[in-house]
């Protein structure tokens, strides 16, 4: 049922005045002594009743139109393709480097953070049906926005990450906070954590267990977009040398993610183009049926009101023109 709202509801206080045509003093009558003579002519009352009703309707129409009624934005449940996505974005100081690993080095290259931000914003714009949330993390995580359909706010939140990042890449609290976002939400579609980071960090074993538990309980898919420096280790093609968790935490993180027991993919991006490719792949992956709400924009009803008033007003004007105001007097 569409809800009706009023942009200027105060005008509605004038609505009682619309009944004025029904009050006795609004009657203009001509004294005519010979009514007794007119018994032969059939007396009708409906034109007068119709006129009053029309006047009343006309006045009401004007008032209601003046208060600018509109049908409120309606949320219509639709079934579409999409997902609930929490963007979990690394905002550590290393994200200020460009893909070549230099800190503000070549002016020709944008920083990892800027490239990620640009591509993510495009991604968000391309997916109107998804719900997004934003969690940013560096040393400490912060949940900027929970799952919401307000795309502009999400874009503002992702855009805010364009500022210089600070601190370390501390993945575990960020993931924990991203998982918290899903807690208590109805499971209506696929849930995705899109982790965008440029490195890994060691996760304590007990924290690992807790995160694994949460991933499974909440049925969240994980996609890790790994922004790799050319000099950094590749998780997909690990070097054949002995690695330690301190020298190449990404490898171990990847191994840990594979043990989560939920769908997991890793995308390595060495440059903005591969980052774009990775995001495009995520897009094709997460297209499951998702009940979502489409917001129909508010519809202004006032033109209809004024139109109706005009339609009523023209006969009223001609009626007024036909009125006989002086007869015997």
């Amino acid at each position: 049922m569409p809800e009706i709202g009023f942009a200027h509801p105060l005008w509605l206080f004038l609505l009682p005045l619309a009944t004025l045509p029904y009050l006795p003093f609004a009657r203009r009558q001509l004294p005519y002594p010979a009514l007794a003579v007119l018994t032969g002519i059939a007396s009708t009352t409906w034109p007068e009743k119709l006129h009053k009703a029309c006047s009343c309707a006309f006045l009401s129409c004007l008032i209601v139109s003046a208060s600018c009624p509109f049908v409120k934005e309606q949320k219509v449940a639709r079934l579409g393709q999409g997902a609930h996505i929490v963007l979990t974005i690394d905002h550590s100081s290393s994200m200020n480097e460009n893909f070549s690993g230099r800190y503000f080095g070549g002016s020709a290259h944008e920083t990892k953070s800027a490239a990620a931000r640009r591509l993510l914003i495009e991604f968000i714009r391309r997916r109107p049906k998804d719900l997004f949330g934003v969690v940013a993390f560096s040393t400490a995580p912060r949940q900027v926005l929970p799952l919401t359909a307000d795309k502009e706010a999400i874009i503002a939140a992702v855009g805010a990450l364009g500022m210089r990042g600070r601190g370390l890449t501390n993945i575990a609290p960020g993931l924990a906070m991203a998982l918290e976002t899903f807690r208590g939400q109805p499971l209506t579609g696929s849930r995705v954590i899109l982790l965008v980071s440029d490195g890994g960090a060691r996760i304590d074993p007990d924290v690992q267990d807790r995160l694994r538990q949460d991933f499974q309980d909440l049925a969240v898919n994980l996609y890790w977009v790994y922004l790799r420096n050319p000099s950094g280790v590749s998780v997909l093609n690990p070097p054949k040398r002995r690695l330690s968790e301190t020298s190449a935490p990404e490898i171990f993180l990847h191994q840990y993610f594979q043990t989560l027991g939920v769908p997991y993919r890793v995308f390595e991006a060495e440059n903005p183009q591969s980052l774009a490719q990775a995001i495009a792949t995520v897009e094709t992956l997460e297209n499951r049926p998702l009940p979502y709400f489409e917001t129909l924009p508010r519809r202004d009803l006032s033109p209809y009101g004024f139109g109706l008033a005009l339609i009523l007003g023209v006969p009223l004007l001609s009626w007024a023109a036909l009125e006989i105001e002086r007869w015997l007097a």
């Binding site: 045509p21 004007l62 008032i63």
Partner: peptide, 16 residues
């Protein structure tokens, strides 16, 4: 529009 509507309303009321 609200103001035009109100002016129209009062003019019509006066005419009636």
């Amino acid at each position: 529009r609200p103001w035009l509507g109100a002016l129209a309303f009062f003019a019509a009321l006066a005419a009636m």
